[in-house]
Simulated scan of single mutants.
Amino acid sequence: MTYWHTCAKKHRESTFAKQADRGSASLWGVALMGLLMTVAMAFVTVGSVRVARHHVQDAADLSALAAARLAIVDPQAACDRAKIIAAKNAVQLLQCTLTGEIADVRTSLTITLPAIGTRTLTGRARAGPSEYTDQARHPWTGTHGPAPMDRHPWTGAGTPSRGARPEQERGPGQAPRTRAGTRTA
């Protein structure tokens, strides 16, 4: 076998090897696109479930507020109003319980997910008047209204009292500061 025959044979073999590999990049590209589509579909599914969960919880909150608003005036119509609010939000009212002035509401929403099937999401909310009234005394200070914030709760740093100007602030044992930041005494 001559040199030219050997070179021609190697050329044919390398050409055949290149032709055998032809099209494999297309297969890898299709496989990668399929993987990306699967991941994107998973993200879309998780996102839609989260949106539906927030939707059913928001509907429960609104229904509870509507029921609590009418709980004192007309207890019979309170749960009817909660049912109307839930229906307007495209969810089903499962339970409406009035305990005095407090409304306890449960709502549900059925969703269909691809490859998983049908699932039911539930939301629960309570609403009623706040425990704090103007006549209530603060448990720490015994005064009416909110607790005074003379010190920051975590750092302990002082905060100016309401109505005080910065030049009037005084720390313990400190002379008042002037506007320029120097001490007067």
Rank of each mutant, 00 (worst) to 15 (best):
T110S: 15
V51T: 15
W28A: 12
M33C: 07
K10C: 09
Q95R: 12
Q57Y: 06
D104G: 04
W140G: 10
T107S: 13
A31L: 10
T118C: 07
L65P: 04
P146Y: 14
H138V: 02
M41F: 05
L70E: 04
L65K: 08
P75D: 02
T133D: 09
R50W: 13
L94F: 07
T107H: 07
A86Y: 00
R119V: 03
S63N: 03
P114A: 03
S14R: 11
M37C: 12
T45R: 05
Q76M: 11
H138P: 04
E101G: 08
G23H: 03
P75T: 02
D58M: 13
F16H: 12
L109G: 10
R53E: 11
G142D: 08
R106H: 11
A25L: 07
L62V: 01
P139M: 08
T143W: 15
H138S: 06
L65Y: 05
T38L: 14
R22C: 04
V56G: 07
L98E: 06
Q19K: 09
C96N: 00
W28C: 09
I116A: 02
S14F: 05
T38V: 11
T143Y: 12
T120K: 14
H54R: 11
E13M: 13
T45G: 03
H144R: 15
V73G: 06
P146A: 15
H144D: 11
A82W: 05
R50M: 14
A125I: 00
P146W: 09
G23M: 00
N89V: 05
D80M: 04
F16K: 15
K18M: 11
L32Y: 01
H11S: 14
R81F: 03
E13V: 08
C96M: 02
A77F: 07
T99V: 14
R22Q: 08
T99I: 10
A78M: 01
V91E: 06
E131L: 15
A136G: 12
Y132H: 15
L32D: 03
V51E: 14
I102E: 10
S108W: 07
V51N: 15
P139E: 10
K83F: 12
A52H: 01
D134Q: 14
T112Y: 05
M41S: 15
E101V: 07
R106N: 12
H54D: 12
V46A: 06
A147F: 11
T15C: 13
L121Q: 10
A136L: 14
T99E: 13
T143F: 14
R53F: 06
E131H: 12
I102Q: 13
I84T: 13
R126D: 01
A90C: 11
V39I: 12
D74L: 04
S24R: 04
H144W: 15
G47A: 01
T107P: 07
S108F: 00
L113Q: 02
R137M: 08
A8P: 05
R12W: 13
S26Q: 11
A86W: 05
A31S: 09
M33F: 11
V30M: 15
A20L: 04
L98M: 06
